[in-house]
């Protein structure tokens, strides 16, 4: 059976097509003002890649902040549940998932079946989200994709005093004026966000192994700082930004199977 997971994020729409527990198509479209159009485009593009007909689709499950705006979805899944199921899809030994996107960060602890045991979410404050590193990279005038690798070159720990991203921008500028090497500032930024994410996740209890998903999973500087803080090596899935959509697709397949069983019995 074919199932589809849709992740309607704040910025992007992500769609994953799953067949027999295998990803056969995926697409990411930046939403902008026309979320409906972006959703259609992402669905078409992922279906085309998968080479499926719409009739083949057994079930569609939506997740993400805009999950109510997916009319073709038959059911929904919270972002927390989607992160857990998506992480487990890639790593059967994962028990904690850290998901840091542009506008929020969350930590989820779950059991071997992917059932959520405890979770914590930090939203509405850029200090604990990917937006923090984006703002700092801008203040440092370093392209975002080079920001992580730059941080790895540093072997010096300097503390950042500011918590707020706006105040941290000023702090970064003063560090530049004080002739602090950019690589050391980059490391300070990643250490700062990693330390906040670690404290947040500790609230749910960190159980090994730990998977990292979301946009910040592409940032090697952040991964390095996070590993140091958590004293572990986090697992990074391929295409980490699709994790929630995969989680939704997995649940869509399960629920679809149950529904058809139920149909046969009645």
């Amino acid at each position: 059976m074919v199932s589809i997971g849709v992740d309607m994020g704040a910025k992007n729409v992500k769609v994953v097509v799953l067949r027999e527990n295998e990803v056969i198509g995926k697409a990411l479209v930046t939403a902008g003002l026309d979320t409906e159009g972006a959703l259609k485009e992402a669905l078409q593009s992922a279906s085309r890649e998968a080479g499926i007909d719409y009739d083949e689709v057994g079930n569609i499950t939506a997740t993400g902040a805009g999950r109510k705006d997916v009319p073709m979805a038959r059911d929904e899944l919270t972002e927390v549940g989607a992160a857990a199921r998506g992480a487990l899809f890639h790593f059967s030994d994962a028990r904690t998932v850290i998901d840091v996107g542009a506008e929020e960060g969350r930590g989820v602890r779950f059991n071997a079946e992917g059932r959520v045991i405890d979770f914590v979410i930090n939203e509405k404050c850029a200090a604990g989200a990917g937006a923090f590193t984006e703002a700092m990279a801008r203040a440092l005038e370093v392209p975002l994709e080079e920001f992580g690798p730059l941080s790895l070159k540093s072997d010096r720990e300097i503390p950042m005093n500011a918590q707020c991203a706006v105040f941290a921008e000023s702090e970064v500028v003063s560090l530049v004026h004080a002739k602090t090497p950019k690589k050391d500032i980059a490391r300070a930024v990643h250490d700062a966000i990693a330390s906040r994410i670690t404290s947040m996740v500790r609230r749910v209890g960190v159980e090994e192994r730990v998977a990292l998903v979301g946009g910040l999973a592409y940032n090697v500087g952040f991964i390095d700082s996070l590993n140091r803080d958590l004293e572990t090596e986090v697992l990074i899935p391929p295409d980490p930004e699709y994790t929630a959509a995969i989680g939704a697709a997995v649940v869509a397949a399960e629920r679809g199977a149950k529904a058809s069983e139920g149909g046969e019995n009645s």
């Binding site: 003002l33 509405k124 850029a126 937006a131 923090f132 703002a135 991203a165």
Partner: peptide, 14 residues
């Protein structure tokens, strides 16, 4: 709607 200045800026740009 955003309290955070960074997010309010994104909202205002929108």
């Amino acid at each position: 709607s955003s309290t955070c200045v960074i997010f309010a800026k994104t909202e205002a740009t929108g």
